[in-house]
């Protein structure tokens, strides 16, 4: 399924099926979220398509992941000075709106090219270390689990190192657990490989 169709399905089809009681508010949420997200675009790029290697792309990410991470920043669970300030005055409703908006955007301009030597190596490592089990077979994200294919390389590297060092906040410890078996020197090739993955 193309990403667009998948997002369309999530926004218009799956959501009313699972959460029928929310159906009516979906459109308004996206519009309100788009307006609210204007302040995010300076760093996260147009429609969440970041062009800064250190700043994550939000376009097409699962809505639940985005709203939960905004909550994390506002409450000081996940620590980042800029994001804490950005999230400080957002209400729960506004977080959900912003999440609804970004989750329905297309990931565009993911032009990063992985190093040649990491293409095969990265594919093997992401299989070996179970990335494909939770993040989806093509690493496009599942439910609340972020899309890591085509994510910015510097951002991926920072997060993976944080999980490895047990300093990155982690809901149930799953990523800390996953990184406990990854060798430190394997982190860079994994990040480089993931960043170069294109939307199927």
């Amino acid at each position: 399924m193309s990403l667009f169709i998948r997002q369309f399905a999530i926004a218009v089809f799956a959501t009313p099926l699972l959460f029928g009681f929310q159906t009516l508010s979906i459109a308004a949420d996206v519009a309100a979220g788009k307006a609210k997200a204007e302040q995010c675009s300076a760093c996260h790029g147009p429609n969440g398509n970041s062009v800064n290697p250190e700043i994550p792309a939000l376009a097409g990410q699962p809505a639940l992941m985005i709203s939960n991470m905004l909550f994390y920043y506002r409450e000081g669970i996940r620590k980042n000075e800029i994001m804490r300030a950005m999230a400080a005055n957002l209400s729960n409703k506004e977080m959900k709106d912003v999440a609804a908006f970004y989750s329905t955007q297309m990931r565009e301009n993911a032009s990063y090219q992985s190093k040649v030597e990491n293409v095969q190596k990265g594919a093997l490592l992401t299989e070996k270390y179970n990335c494909t089990q939770c993040h989806g077979p093509q690493l496009q994200g599942v439910q609340h689990i972020p899309r890591i294919a085509g994510q910015q390389p510097g951002y991926l590297l920072t997060q993976l190192k944080g999980f490895k060092a047990m300093t990155r906040e982690d809901m149930d410890g799953n990523m800390t657990s996953a990184l406990s078996m990854v060798k430190y020197e394997e982190i860079e090739p994994i990040a480089d490989y993931l960043a170069g993955l294109k939307t199927p």
Binding site: F19, Q22, S25, L64, M65, S67, N68, L70, F71, Y72, N92, K93, M95, K96, T132, Q133, C134, G136, P137, V142, Q143, H144, I145, M171, D172, N174
Partner: peptide, 15 residues
């Protein structure tokens, strides 16, 4: 290769 995964709560609540 099981794709079973834990679920995450809606921290911002569900109306």
């Amino acid at each position: 290769k099981s794709p079973l995964h834990p679920f995450a709560p809606n921290l911002t609540g569900v109306d």
